[in-house]
């Protein structure tokens, strides 16, 4: 099976993002966790059915994103090729990216394209579906496991209300992965460093047309809610709580 997994980076929220004068201070990027699951599932499928895994790391032109380490990590985990795809023009619309990517994938003959189901930055979860539209391939999301069955894949999906569903999807197809079948595999640091030293990351560029429709006005942190610790015996705490509710007008 010829598989492609799409990997993006997102801001690392652990490293506390600061906003000063409506602008975000430079912050650290980290691989989007769902995308890492997509890579994991791709490697699992390759181990199970053979074939190859290409991982495509998408970065915006002129951004501080560092995709090299996540790509090396994917190689360390078992991917065969790592491709850094730089997008010209920062775009806040996945649709533009999807169009360009669809174009890029045209002659690549992937049987499966896996994406993480969403990223913590935009929260849209639209890349997969849009690719599906432009590439005219079947898509299904919220996938938690994949099994190959002559020319199709049988996928398990999380549905609402705690239900699970099994779907058959004809290949080639695009899947949105919510989590891989197994926990993300561990890569010791020494191994990662070794791969980073040796790995050849291919580079390519993707032309994205200028689009003026959406622009950033400002970034800001919400006002922090005031936290009051209510102490005392349960009865006392209950009284204080009622008092407080009354004060803010919910009671």
């Amino acid at each position: 099976m010829k598989i492609c997994a799409i990997l993006r980076t997102v801001p690392d929220l652990v490293e506390e993002i600061e906003v000063i004068d409506d602008e975000i201070e430079p912050f650290a990027y980290i691989a989007n966790e769902r995308d890492e699951h997509a890579v994991e599932e791709a490697v699992i499928l390759k181990e199970r059915y053979g074939g190859s895994v290409d991982v495509i790391g998408i970065v915006d032109e002129d951004s501080e994103e560092e995709i090299e380490e996540p790509l090396a990590m994917a190689l360390a985990k078992g991917a065969d090729r790592a491709i850094k795809l730089t997008m010209s023009n920062k775009s806040y619309r996945r649709i533009e990216q999807a169009k360009a990517l669809a174009e890029y994938f045209k002659d690549k003959d992937y049987d499966l394209i896996l994406t993480g189901i969403q990223g913590i930055d935009a929260f849209t979860g639209m890349l997969g579906p849009m690719l599906s539209v432009y590439m005219e391939l079947p898509f299904t999301g919220y996938v938690t496991s994949v099994e190959a069955e002559d020319g199709t894949v049988k996928v398990q999906k999380e549905l609402g209300g705690g239900l699970l569903g099994e779907f058959r999807v004809k290949l080639p197809a695009i899947l949105g992965i919510v989590s891989a079948e197994k926990p993300l595999r561990f890569v010791p640091l020494a191994k990662l460093r070794q791969v980073m030293k040796k790995a050849e990351i291919e580079e390519d560029e993707l032309e994205i047309p200028e689009f003026e429709g959406v622009q950033v006005v400002k970034y800001y942190e919400p006002e922090k809610p005031e936290i009051v610790l209510l102490e005392g015996e349960p009865e006392e705490v209950a009284d204080k709580l009622i008092e407080a509710f009354k004060e803010i007008g919910v009671l």
Partner: peptide, 21 residues
């Protein structure tokens, strides 16, 4: 086990966190 990629999850997380943070 680490090279095999499958240490116990809780520990793996601690190690990965330590590597990053």
């Amino acid at each position: 086990s680490l090279l095999e990629g499958n240490p116990p999850e809780e520990l793996a997380r601690a190690l990965m966190n330590t590597a990053r943070y």
